[in-house]
């Protein structure tokens, strides 16, 4: 039987390239979660965004292999899956750092100095918004409003909301949290 999957390309990463694609679906339990989501929508096309949400939650990002797998299971052309995955800001095709910091650049935060906060973090960690530090520890992202405007300016660190941050203290607050997690591990 011919396998319709394309070469794994950059998605393969370390060693996985040697394994057969179908092995990965079996050996990696996380595909079960995506499978459950797709089943809930009767493997129909309208479950695509939900499937991508599951995949991103499970893997942290969407690689080519996963996108192809979803396309095949939902009987959608790969172009459609890739098109949807790249249309929405929340989906990312690049692996993320160990921690994620999202700085809100909504209007209220902006007026209260979110840009200075972002600049301070960028300078401290030598990373541009949208990028990941060289040691893969921190991904710095921006958002269009968390709706926590009363706490402006706001950022989140691994999902935890930190409000009323200042440019001076922001980098330090992030460092403290990363340190705490490292010590706990």
């Amino acid at each position: 039987m011919t396998n319709p999957l394309p070469p794994l390309g950059r998605a393969a990463g370390n060693g996985a390239a040697t394994a057969k694609p179908d092995d990965r679906l079996v050996s990696d339990k996380r595909y079960k979660i995506i499978e459950a989501t797709m089943r809930r929508y009767g493997y129909q096309g309208h479950g695509l965004i939900e499937a991508l949400h599951s995949a991103q939650e499970a893997f942290g990002y969407l690689d080519d292999f996963t996108l192809m797998h979803i396309a095949r299971t939902l009987h959608l052309p790969p172009s459609k899956v890739f098109g949807v995955a790249t249309f929405y800001n929340l989906f990312t095709l690049k692996p993320q750092g160990a921690h994620t910091c999202v700085v809100c650049l909504g209007t209220a935060c902006y007026i209260k100095g979110a840009r200075e906060v972002l600049a301070a973090i960028e300078a401290e960690y030598d990373v541009k918004a949208g990028g990941t530090t060289r040691d893969n520890q921190l991904s710095l992202l921006t958002a269009r409003c968390f709706g926590s405007c009363a706490l402006a300016p706001v950022l989140t660190f691994d999902g935890e909301t930190i409000g009323k941050v200042t440019p001076e203290a922001a980098a330090q607050q992030i460092a403290q949290r990363m340190m705490a997690i490292r010590q706990a591990a």
Partner: peptide
């Protein structure tokens, strides 16, 4: 769930998104 697209607040775009596109 939306996925971070402001335009999806527009009704026809929102429906396209519910349809999975």
């Amino acid at each position: 769930l939306g996925a971070g697209a402001f335009v999806c607040g527009e009704e026809t775009a929102l429906m396209a998104s519910i349809e999975g596109g």
